[in-house]
């Protein structure tokens, strides 16, 4: 069972899964585009059928549409430019959507068995809990934001008290080491200058 070939196969499966779990499939965008296209095509089909049976068009008869396309220079320039700019914008957004990696807010966590993927949100809330406890800050005054490479911990002290900054730094570093994430997170701890009263 555990011949080298099986091992390699499992590793390549894991690589594929990891990539798919950490990047967006762009399904929402693709489905939206497809649905809009379907609606537009159905509309066009309806107009053609209506024209064929000689009924009044919903908006414009197909022949009138062709005619308008051939006489764009007669239409008001402002309208044509407006529609053109709109299409340019939508086109640019679609191409950006298709070409960018679309990373999801997730990190890989080292494991002995299998593959583990953790939402950044979970990492952030665990760090917040530990940081608040270590710094003796109210959990409501602790915010943590996790991006691809940085874990930013923002603490607002209760006015009149001091935050044990060193304890926070070492606790956060300890947690991050235990998580052993890929890509690794660099802790960035910020203590607000002004405290909050009654917090």
């Amino acid at each position: 069972m555990s011949e080298p070939s099986t091992y390699r196969r499992t590793q390549s499966t894991y690589r594929r899964i990891l990539r798919r779990e950490t990047h967006s499939p762009r399904s929402v965008l693709a489905i939206t585009v497809a649905v809009v296209l379907i609606l537009a095509l159905l509309y066009l089909g309806t107009e053609i059928v209506l024209a064929m049976i000689g009924t009044r068009a919903l908006l414009a008869a197909p022949l009138d549409m062709l005619d308008a396309l051939a006489h764009l220079d007669d239409a008001p320039d402002g309208l044509v430019v407006g529609v053109g700019v709109g299409l340019l914008l939508i086109g640019a957004l679609l191409i950006i959507g298709a070409a960018t990696p679309g990373r999801r807010g997730r990190h890989q966590m080292s494991t002995e068995r299998g593959l583990a993927v953790v939402d950044d949100e979970v990492i952030a809330s665990a760090l917040a809990r530990h940081a608040a406890h270590a710094g003796d800050v109210d959990p409501d005054n602790t915010t943590v934001s996790v991006s691809r490479r940085v874990a930013g911990v923002h603490l607002v002290p209760t006015s009149g008290t001091r935050i044990r900054r060193d304890a926070v730094i070492s606790t956060v570093a300890e947690q991050l080491e235990a998580f052993d994430l890929t890509p690794s997170l660099e802790p960035r701890i910020v203590v607000a200058e002004r405290g909050r009263v009654g917090a």
Binding site: L72, L89, G97
Partner: peptide, 22 residues
């Protein structure tokens, strides 16, 4: 991604043509 890109390119082309014509 290919579907989105193809439609994006079509939109860009038609949009550019309209702006150009006007």
């Amino acid at each position: 991604r290919v579907l989105v890109a193809v439609i994006g390119v079509i939109f860009l082309a038609v949009g550019a043509a309209l702006v150009g014509i006007a």
